[in-house]
C-alpha cells in the first residue's frame, strides 16, 4: 500500500468537505442583491481608493530573508537525519559530523547578524535612529 494513495485520498476528502458544505449552503441560502451590500467594509465610511496600497517595505525585506533562511533549513534536514548514524559510523568522528553543520550555521548567523545590524528585520525605527541614519530600507 502506497502511503501517498492515502494522502491523496485525504486531499480528496479535504476538497470534498468544503465543496459539500458550499453546495449545501448554495441550496439553503437566500440571495437578495443590493448594491450597497457589496461595498467593501471600511468601518462604515464610504470606501476610498483602491486596495493597491503601498505598504511597508519591511514586508519585502523579511520575505527575502525568509526565502533564503527557509531553504537553508531544508538543507539542514538531511544532516539532522543522518547525524546519529554518522556519529556511530567508524570513519566519521564527532568533528566530521558536527563541524560542517556548525560552519554552515555560523555563516547563516553572520548573515542574520548583518541583516539585524543593517535594519532589515527592524519593523519601525525609533526617532533617534531616524535622525542618525540615511533612509536605508
Amino acid at each position: 500500500m502506497n502511503d501517498w494513495i492515502a494522502i491523496g485520498m485525504l486531499a480528496l476528502v479535504g476538497l470534498l468537505i468544503p465543496l459539500g458544505m458550499m453546495s449545501v449552503s448554495y441550496l439553503l441560502r437566500p440571495s437578495v442583491p443590493e448594491t450597497s451590500k457589496r461595498a467593501t467594509y471600511e468601518s462604515g465610511e464610504v470606501p476610498t481608493g483602491g486596495t493597491r496600497i503601498r505598504f511597508n517595505i519591511q514586508y519585502y525585506m523579511v520575505a527575502l530573508l525568509f526565502v533564503v533562511f527557509d531553504i537553508e533549513t531544508v538543507l539542514l534536514f538531511p544532516w539532522a537525519v543522518v547525524y546519529q548514524d554518522a556519529l556511530a559510523a567508524e570513519e566519521y568522528g564527532l568533528l566530521h559530523a558536527l563541524g560542517p553543520m556548525l560552519l554552515f550555521v555560523a555563516i547563516l548567523l553572520v548573515g542574520l547578524a548583518w541583516a539585524w545590524r543593517t535594519g532589515a528585520v527592524q519593523w519601525a525605527r525609533t526617532p533617534r535612529q531616524l535622525e542618525s541614519g540615511a533612509d536605508r530600507p
Binding site: 555563516i107 553572520v110 548573515g111 547578524a113 535594519g119 536605508r136
Partner: peptide, 12 residues
Amino acid sequence: MALFLIDSISPR
C-alpha cells in the same frame, strides 16, 4: 565574511 562582520559592527 570579515566584510560582513565589519558592516555588522558598524553599519553604513
